[in-house]
Design a protein around this nucleic acid. Sequence first.
DNA 1: CCTAAGCGTGGTCTGCAGTC
DNA 2: GACTGCAGACCACGCTTAGG
Length: 257
Amino acid sequence: MIRNSFSIIRGIGERLERRIWQSGIYTWDDFIRACELDFIPLDMKIRYDMELLELMKLLEDSNVRHLCRVIKRREHWRLYDVLREDALCLDIETTGLSPEAGGYVTVVGLYDCKEYISLVRGFELDSKRLKNIISNYKCLITYNGLCFDIPFLRKTFPEVFFELPHFDLSQSARRLGIKGGLKDLERHFHINRNHRLTGMNGYDAVRLWEQWKSGSEEALNLLIEYNKADTINLKKLADMIYPLLRESTGFLWTSQG
DNA sequence: CCTAAGCGTGGTCTGCAGTC
DNA sequence: GACTGCAGACCACGCTTAGG
């Protein structure tokens, strides 16, 4: 999708993007090859050509840190098809309080479509390990991570860079008119989870951490299992939401694939 | 069920630039 | 000059998280 996108450039909105597609220009290459467009002034066209060439270079070099700065945050999802192989699903559990109020992260769940890893406070969870893991990936997938997980992690681990293209499923779903939390989204897409975990919510995760601290090994196991279900389902949801977002742009996929 | 913080979204307005 | 299309600022609102 990213190489079909024009609204990521300053000066081009979604309306103009549709007009570009309607004129038979579907890719960055098409755009640059077109000598002149009657609805874009020549000097602007030249500027856009330059910007697209720069974006092409960034993509070629997989310079995701620069890419995620250049591309509007709400349009990061457009990178998903080129970065999906290097995407990392992330979901955290906390004590419920904000870092300012003395709260902390209890579990960080990470899933790269092959393996799930949980980093638990007091065991594996530290900034060095988190930094090492994240540096291996080019894209983050979260649920409401823009508002909750990433700001919380930034405050807790200021030395870890989270500057990656970020596919936030909460906002994407809202954009598609699908409301509700993660569990609602799972129901919407008929994604099931283990019967032990149905009905559980974030507050249960807080409770389980308290129980673990009081000596219940079983509580920690269940907390990790809960986090694992949340984290793994992010990937399934991303794969379902992405094509819907693509459709919502109005791009003529049937003629161009 | 209400509250709070944090952040994005969407609508509206204004100003600018280009076209006719 | 009217119109179009864009960016940016602003504001109200929505949604998430979780506590109490």
